[in-house]
Each structure stands twice: as C-alpha cells, then as structure tokens.
Design a protein around this nucleic acid. Sequence first.
DNA 1: TACCCGTCGGCAAACGTTTTCCGCGCGCCG
DNA 2: CGGCGCGCGGAAAACGTTTGCCGACGGGTA
Lengths: 319, 319
Amino acid sequence: MATVSRALNNQATVDTELAERVRVAAAELGYRRNGVARSLRLQRTDVWALIISDIANPFFTAVARGLEDVAQEQGYSVVLCNSDEDPAKEARYLDVAVREQVSGVVLSPNEVSSDISHLQRLGVPVVAIDRPLREPVDSVLVRSAAGAEEATTHLLQQGWRRPACITGPESAGTAVQRLTGYRRAMAAHSRRSPKNLVRYADYRADRAGLAAADLLDGRYPPDSFFVANSEMALGVLEELRHRRLVPGRDVGLVAFDDAPWTQFTERPLTVVAQPAYEMGVLAGRLLLDRIGVPLDAQPAARTRRLRTELVVRGSSLRD
Amino acid sequence: MATVSRALNNQATVDTELAERVRVAAAELGYRRNGVARSLRLQRTDVWALIISDIANPFFTAVARGLEDVAQEQGYSVVLCNSDEDPAKEARYLDVAVREQVSGVVLSPNEVSSDISHLQRLGVPVVAIDRPLREPVDSVLVRSAAGAEEATTHLLQQGWRRPACITGPESAGTAVQRLTGYRRAMAAHSRRSPKNLVRYADYRADRAGLAAADLLDGRYPPDSFFVANSEMALGVLEELRHRRLVPGRDVGLVAFDDAPWTQFTERPLTVVAQPAYEMGVLAGRLLLDRIGVPLDAQPAARTRRLRTELVVRGSSLRD
DNA sequence: TACCCGTCGGCAAACGTTTTCCGCGCGCCG
DNA sequence: CGGCGCGCGGAAAACGTTTGCCGACGGGTA
C-alpha cells in the first residue's frame, strides 16, 4: 500500500520503472483513488470554490473561465456556486466550502459585510472579486468609480442634460462606487444635487425597469441613464421600448459591464467594459500565492484594481 | 461522541431537550462537523454535480437555477462544472464527481458517446439533460426535431424560399435532431435536397458567423437562417450586420433557444423557447427518485421530452 | 568481511465522523 | 420487588488514504 501510494503521487523515492508498473496495474484494475479519504488524510482537496452572485451575468461567466484556466493548469478543479444575490445562499455555500475543505475560495460578496472569518480562521485562502469586503483580504476589483465617472461625463459631453443613475443595492460595494463616480461627474459639471435622479435597484432587470419607469414618471424626468450593470440595462431597455423611447435618439444610455449581446440591440449599447477574464486569472494567481504557505508566512492582503474601458457605441449619442 | 453525533443528525433516539443543549454547545464552541470525514464514513455527500457544456449559455444557467431550487429544498447543494464543449474537460469533471463521491450527477453531454459507465458501476445516479446519451439513462430532453421543424416551417410560410440551417457539432445529439427537424420541414414543402444550405458549427458564435459568411458567399445563397442555438445567433447577427443585412427585412432569422436579450436586438429575434427552468427541476426530481434506492430496486431509465414553444418576433417576418 | 546506501514493502497511526454493541440508571408497571 | 423499556454514553470498528518507522535485500565501497 505504501509504495503504491507513493508511486501514484509521483514521489521520488520510488523507482520510475516500478511506478510505471503500478500505474498500469491501477488502470487495468480500474482503480480510482478515493478523493474523500485522501482529503481527510491530507486535510485539503484539489478543489477551489468560486461563489458568484449571479450566474446569468456574463461578467461572472468570463471570470469563471479565467479562474478555471489557471486552476486546470495547476491541477485544481473549480466548482461554481451560485448565491443568486441572496446572502443566505452565500452563507450556505461558504459553509459547504469549509465543510468540504476546498483549498481556496473566490467570492464575489453580496455585501461588504459578508462573513468569511471562519474560512480565515482555518487558513483557507480567500480572494474577493468584483466587490470589496470590509475585512482585509486579497481582492481583485475594477476602478468602478472612475469607470462610472467616465461614462457619466461622456453622457454630459454628448449633450444630455439630466442623466439619471440606476445602481445596485446599497449593501454592494460596487453599487456605491459606481454611484460615487456618477456623482463626481455630475459635480464636475456643476449639476444640481442629483438626488432625485438616483435609484437603488438590485442588479436585476425587473427592479431596474421599475426604477426607470419611476424616474420617467417623476416631476423632472431624466433624459438619459447610467445603469450599473448589463443585467439591469435589459430592464431599462424593456421599459424604454414600452414607452417607444429609442436609446440614442430619445434618451441616452450607458451601462456598466459588457455582454455579448450589447452590440446587437436596436442601437448598440455604449458600455463600460471590464476585463473579466483577466480578473479571474488574477484571482487564481492570488490564491496560488497562498496555498500551501504556512499562516505565519502569508503576505499581507493585496488588492489589484483594474482599469475599465469605455466602449462608445450608439446608445449614448444624440442623433 | 455517539450521542452528539445522533443529536446533530436529528435522530429520534435522543431526547429533544438534550439535542437542543448539544446544538447550543456546538454553536458556542464554533464546532462544525467535518464534511469530508462524514462523507468518508457515509460513502456519500450532500452534493450534486451539474456538468454543463457552456456556462455562458443562458439556457444552462436557467437549468442550473431549476436544479438548485429542488436541491436546496431537499438539503443538497449543487456545484457547477463547466466543460466548455471540451470532451476532455468533461471527462475530468466526471472523474472529480466520482472521486468526491457526489450523490448525483446531472450532465449535458458533449457527445452522445460520453462515458458515464464508471458512475453507473458505482451506482451514482446520472441524468442527461438537453442532449441524449447513447447509454440508457434518465434523460430530460426537449422535442428538438419538432421545434426545429416548426421554426423552419414558419420561415417557409412567411415566404422565405431558401432557409439555411446552421446547426451544432455532429457529435451532439441536439445538433442532429435540430437538423432533422429542419430537413423534415424542407421535405414537406418539397424543397430540393438542402445539402448546400446546411452547415455544422460548434454551438459557438465565431464558427457560426463564419458558416453564415460561407453560405452567403456560395453560389446559391440562402435568404434566411435557422440557427440551432442563441449563442450562434449572435455570430450570425454579427455577420449580417457586417453585410448590412437587416433580419426581418433582408433576411429571415429564427434561433433555437430563448435568451434575455433576444427581444432587444435590432429586430427582436424569433426563437424556439425551451422550458429550461422546468428541465432543471425535472432533472432534480429524477435524481431524487434514485438517491438512496438500492441498485436492484432502481426504476428503468426514464426519458422526459418537453415541448418547445415558437415565439414569433420580428426577425422572421418579411417587411 | 563489515558497512553503507538506495529501493522496497510491511506495519500502524492518523484524519473525524457514524454506527453498532453493550451496559447503566431510571421510572413505570405488574 | 422484579422485569422492562427508554434514554444515555462509553468503547470500538469502519470508511480509504498518506506517511513515518523499520527491517530486508542487493550492490558498491572501505
């Protein structure tokens, strides 16, 4: 048993020719080692968990691809858990992650206050992606505020006079950052306090559509929208279509987040694109830096902030 | 130890008051049971694996939601693995599934010949979703051929004379079924053998775009397209835009697979919608029927075929 | 001849549960 | 007062690996 185990784990102490024979025999017998028993003994698994807040969001699927590519390369597998913007589900999956002893967790937290203390106590490396956490932890973020500011400024420069902002839930770090960027741009153009031009939604299409309707029905309706992700842009588009308002003609529209379909809408959508794939890769590298490193030799929490890119298409222009 | 274990597992033999005290103490001490050790002893986990072929495809994300909802309800967690249309990755994840002793697998196989024999030998329930498998196994499928036939017939009835078909890879069951439906419709309208109107692609946007270009550059270019999934529809849309062809005016277009963005394209897309969420739910129920049932009491393989729905929007109409 | 080193494999502990077996104490009933 | 059933808990086996310890063997070296 001992030698077989050593052979299958490519340990140097076993002769290569014998190791080969072992592998052949194993294959012949259809032997597969029991990963659970192995994990129990080793106190770790070759699995990473990626806990994302919305599986339907192409941003996260691109992140997943990036993470998976570095994982595979290093012999890890990635399992994906969908918290669906629900803190309870997120907690459930964090719990599954510790129970199943994954050796690394990449998390896009629903809230800045998500509780990862248990993982940290156990020494499981965690990296926050897309959204910041209150606790100090490796993070891969984008310069949301800067991107939002650039987008809003672009609207103003195009001649739109009253851009509204539909952002995510107040509990999400990205939502407030994007709002901050919007406010900065408005202030820089000495626009009035845009309080009644701002709505918090939940990063989902439905609520965003309602928010748009609410804004348009208000006393001083906006003439354009900055929307904090592409999912919500769909909701806004629906509401606009309902009112026969055409983006790029009757209203201006910019969304955070690129998606494959954005160039095929009635007027192609102007978006703030994020380097999602690279973010996944980066998160993987940050994990790798910590895995197997004793707690006292761990580097301090590092944060990578990536730049966004404004992709101007039709929906933000004035005919 | 024995009593604590029984208490935490809600066994009837322990007094409810004592069980409560155990739970309180456990919470106080921050005790979390080790899921790996538990799985080792129990020879199973509370985890299902969902192995899908394309994580960016909204069809699969809807399936995932459906499956997850029944899983949660029954105390299971579902981890998602992305095989990315790559048989090698799929095999890797199937292997991870057996190694990690998941108690059920839902698989959308890349090929009808994907090898699940090892899972079956071990008695791990498997259900194939979306695409059929050669081996007898529980399956949740849609009536692809019927849907494709209906879509193609619709194009013909709208007055399009030469609809082309861009389908998936020959190895995928759905791809050939959709092609079959297309052929049936063509035959029913006594169209010539449509050999040079058919292209196999890989269910991805890029290759589909190339296929469209190839068709349009041929000797007898098509005047309309039936495309076998929404991902590929994006590729076709790109190629059409490149040529300044507007769907619903210059060409007809129907795609299999609904997606959130389909109603917001330049001309809203006519699609064959699949009940993706329900399919996930159904797959979960099929798993539940088998989990914990001894091998000799297992029902024979069952297949559920769900109906598609043709959603007519603008892209298939003639102005 | 004695010794050392590299390779090999037997033995056993350990990982953290669940579960069976068994014995104890208690209250209840006949 | 004896027997019984119930709730409880101790002891130990089992799940399938990894790994340290140790002894065996063979070949080269002092």
